[in-house]
């Protein structure tokens, strides 16, 4: 845990819980998250599917509200806000980047980048200039009047990045930003993120790709709605193990990951027993350490 201290965090999350009701069952998607993210951090949030990663991302992005707990984003107590206020916070504080870009197909790149400013009371007279500046920053100043279907995947994602930057958000929230891109374009986009980070931008990337996470400065791992590990990327045991294996040419689930997963599972079982809840819940299914998901197998 070597986040830069001494500054006020941009994101301050305390005992964040999110419970979904699925029929009779109550599913605890997030089960008490504590997380601080400081200005100019580059954080990767990782986790297998079902780990609560998407739920956390939705709450971080102010698209969803927690069941309980605190989430303070740049001084805004979002857990107390209504949907209208949250929309304003999304507009001002968060730059979204999506896996499938989510550009408006009938509008030009420039118009797409101007979109967030349409819903903002600021930059009314400078919207076009700002959008052009943002496109220049991502290296697309010659593609301003192109429509998304005239652009390559990497260019589209760069338009989306320009769009996320244009309102000067306090945080960029990227959801699998390279999920739809080939490895070469992935590198370009990651480089762009690194460049933005160096320029002082706070970036949160939600991903399941270790190589993408490796470019972040900090890796937060989720499992069953809890944070199971939170290290700088060059100290994260799972990541280091993965790097080791990659260099040896073995791309498989790592021993370190299995180890940490097993430890987390054991802890959870102990906790559940302590709670002595007889109610059936999604979390009460028997999960043995060796049966842990091996979805990263075969990926390199």
């Amino acid at each position: 845990m070597s986040a830069p201290r001494g500054k006020n965090p941009i994101i301050r999350i305390r005992q964040l819980k999110k419970v979904f009701r699925v029929g009779e069952e109550r599913v605890r998607a997030l089960d008490g998250i504590d997380l601080d993210i400081f200005p100019n951090e580059f954080v990767a949030i990782m986790g297998a599917s079902g780990s609560g990663k998407s739920t956390l991302m939705n709450i971080l992005g102010c698209l969803d509200k927690p069941t309980s707990g605190q989430y303070i984003l740049n001084g805004h107590p979002t857990h107390k806000m209504g949907m209208g206020k949250l929309a304003q916070v999304r507009n001002q504080e968060i730059g979204f980047i999506f896996q499938s870009y989510e550009l408006l197909n009938r509008s030009t790149a420039l118009r797409n980048v101007m979109l967030p400013m349409l819903y903002s009371k600021h930059h009314i007279f400078s919207a076009r200039r700002r959008a052009k500046d943002a496109l220049r920053l991502v290296g697309l100043d010659d593609r301003m009047s192109h429509r998304p279907n005239q652009l390559s995947g990497g260019q589209r994602q760069r338009v989306a990045i320009a769009r996320s930057l244009v309102n000067e958000p306090s945080m960029i929230l990227a959801d699998e930003p390279t999920g739809n891109l080939d490895s070469k374009t992935t590198v370009e986009i990651i480089d762009l993120f690194t460049k933005l980070h160096k320029a002082g931008q706070t970036i949160v990337v939600v991903t399941h790709e270790e190589d993408v996470a490796g470019h972040a400065r900090r890796i937060v791992r989720l499992r069953d709605g809890r944070i199971i590990s939170d290290y700088p990327s060059d100290e994260d045991p799972i990541h280091l193990d993965w790097v080791q294996r990659m260099s040896e040419g073995r791309a498989s689930i790592t021993d370190a990951e299995l180890e940490i997963n097993a430890k987390a599972d054991a802890e959870r079982r102990a906790r559940l027993e302590a709670e002595k809840k007889n109610k059936r819940s999604l979390f009460s299914r028997k999960s043995k350490p060796e049966a842990v998901s091996t979805k990263r197998e075969g990926e390199s």
Partner: peptide, 16 residues
């Protein structure tokens, strides 16, 4: 629907 979702994520309030 996706466009609506995007606009809302970008800060479009329900009345908009």
């Amino acid at each position: 629907t996706r466009e609506i979702g995007l606009r809302k994520a970008m800060g479009a309030k329900p009345p908009v």
